[in-house]
């Protein structure tokens, strides 16, 4: 049943999100090609000289560059925040809106319903973030190649520094990969938890949902600041300044936030589960 729920969830959200992702891919390709075409002119443009002695090319380049940058930022916003908001609205409507009558009478459990939506949302949010990172890397590489700038790969140097500081490189990679996944799951569960609480309101459920979301954000900020302060105290007790302690400190902070994200996601999952199974209040 979980497999069927995931299949239909992907089908329901796939169309819109594929369009958004495809738009970003197209913009990246256009941008990369544009960089190769325009970069040779950039020197002249920046110095107020156009390649053919007129102002037309500079003006054209300026307009095109401005439009592209605007479109790129809008697309990046749509890809990340837009995906997040779309999945949030989808969850809210399909669980607690009119469509909830269909979802909540399916022959399955609330646990499987929440899990299916969470897996779908985490997959899409992760894919969106990876796509944005990939897009930025493509554009950066294109810029570097077109302008003839030398690029350095500092990763081996960083790995050597970590080894020198007696910090396991694989462990560090696992730590930050886990942190990224846990943070995405936590952010998805935050929207689910706030929707679950928001549907308890008699009126203005959207405002109630947003209110709970901002309240949760404040709690997270307080807990996060407290965790950072505790970490800072621990790090300061050591010989802060040497690479070993810097890396250990950073990893300690990473580990602390991993624990917080996992605990937070689990708590929010049980909150959503409890409200959906015991306090469902459909419109």
């Amino acid at each position: 049943m979980l497999g069927k729920l995931i299949k239909h969830e992907f089908k329901a959200v796939g169309k819109f999100l594929t369009i958004v992702a495809s738009f970003m891919v197209c913009l990246t390709l256009v941008g990369a090609i544009g960089i190769y075409v325009f970069t040779p002119h950039l020197y002249f443009y920046l110095n107020g000289i156009t390649i053919d002695g007129t102002q037309n090319l500079s003006f054209f380049a300026e307009i095109m560059t401005s439009l592209y940058v605007l479109a790129y930022f809008a697309s990046a916003f749509l890809l990340t925040a837009g995906t997040y908001i779309y999945l949030w609205i989808r969850f809210h409507n399909s669980m607690y809106g009119h469509q909830g009558y269909l979802t909540n009478t399916l022959p399955t459990t609330p646990a499987k319903l929440i899990m299916a939506k969470m897996i779908t949302a985490v997959t899409w949010v992760s894919a969106s973030i990876l796509l944005l990172i990939g897009s930025i890397m493509v554009l950066a590489t294109a810029t570097a190649n077109a302008s003839g700038a030398k690029t350095n790969n500092n990763l081996p140097e960083l790995a050597a520094l970590l080894r020198e500081s007696r910090i396991s490189v694989p462990w560090t990679i696992v730590l930050y990969f886990s942190l990224a996944v846990a943070a995405i799951i936590f952010s998805v569960m935050m929207m689910y938890g706030s929707s679950a609480l928001g549907q308890l309101a008699k009126k203005n459920r959207v405002f109630a949902t947003l209110g709970f979301y901002f309240a949760m954000t404040m709690v997270i900020n307080v807990v996060g600041t407290f965790a950072l302060a505790v970490n800072a105290l621990i790090i300061n007790r050591d010989k802060f300044g040497e690479y070993f302690y810097i890396f250990r400190g950073i990893n300690l902070i990473g580990f602390t936030f991993l624990v917080l994200a996992v605990v937070g996601a689990v708590l929010l999952y049980f909150l959503t589960y409890y409200v959906t199974s015991k306090r469902l209040n459909l419109e």
Binding site: A12, K15, S94, H98, Q99, G100, Y101, L102, T105, L106, P107, T108, T109
Partner: peptide
């Protein structure tokens, strides 16, 4: 009421509830 009963109950709510898209 739960997973087992939902397999044998066919329910028509009083308003439309299907996804419009």
């Amino acid at each position: 009421p739960g997973e087992v009963t939902k397999k044998i109950v066919s329910y028509l709510p009083e308003h439309t509830y299907l996804p419009e898209n």
